[in-house]
Amino acid sequence: MNVWIAVIVTGLGCYALKFGGLVMPQRILDDPRVRRFTELVPVALLTALIAVQTLAADGPSLELDAPRLAGLGAAVGALLLRAPFLVVLAVAAAVAAGLRLAGL
């Protein structure tokens, strides 16, 4: 698949979901399982994305990149301290960049 097609299909698909939510009858949320499912799917996807993007090397293999792991660890620390979104990102990038600068 061409990257342009992926871009356009992703865009249209994301829009369709937003629109679908607005026009859907409210009562489908009455089923607690539907509601639960819609709450839990993002949890699974976000966690998988974190795991893959943190550990994936170029190509289909895993690597432990110390600065990247440390950066993510720093983000966890910032979140535990209830830092705002921006600070979390800044801390993560700064730690990873700092460790690379130090030659790790």
Partner: peptide, 26 residues
């Protein structure tokens, strides 16, 4: 450098939470 079909599906699925927001906000 991976599968664009699966990647697109994953990206769209991830947008599924916006449908839930829409339900709530309607």
């Amino acid at each position: 450098g991976g599968g664009l079909v699966a990647g697109t599906l994953g990206a769209v699925l991830l947008g599924g939470r916006n449908a839930l927001y829409g339900l709530r906000l309607a």
